[in-house]
């Protein structure tokens, strides 16, 4: 198993044991531009990702 990050229609896989912020940076996702949720609850940047986690990323940027 691994950790899955989902942002819009894209999926990323990362190794468990990493902090969320590092997992984001590793996939070129700017941490400041997303909010992460797991099982519907928000998690913070320093959260350590565990095996089997599914993290849903919500884009925060809006505007035209």
């Amino acid at each position: 198993m691994a950790v899955k990050l989902i942002l819009r229609d894209k999926e990323y896989e990362v190794r468990p044991g990493m902090a969320l912020v590092d997992a984001l940076k590793k996939n070129n996702i700017v941490p400041e531009s997303v909010i992460a949720t797991r099982d519907g609850e928000m998690i913070t940047d320093d959260e350590i990702l565990r095996d089997g986690d599914v993290v849903k990323l919500i884009a925060v940027i809006s505007g035209g």
Binding site: K25, V30, P31, E32, S33, I61, S62, G63, G64
Partner: peptide
Amino acid sequence: ECPFAEGSQSILYKETLNQLET
């Protein structure tokens, strides 16, 4: 998003500033 917001200048500026913020 409003479909017309895609590729707008304000979104480019926000993304740029977020990289700086990081």
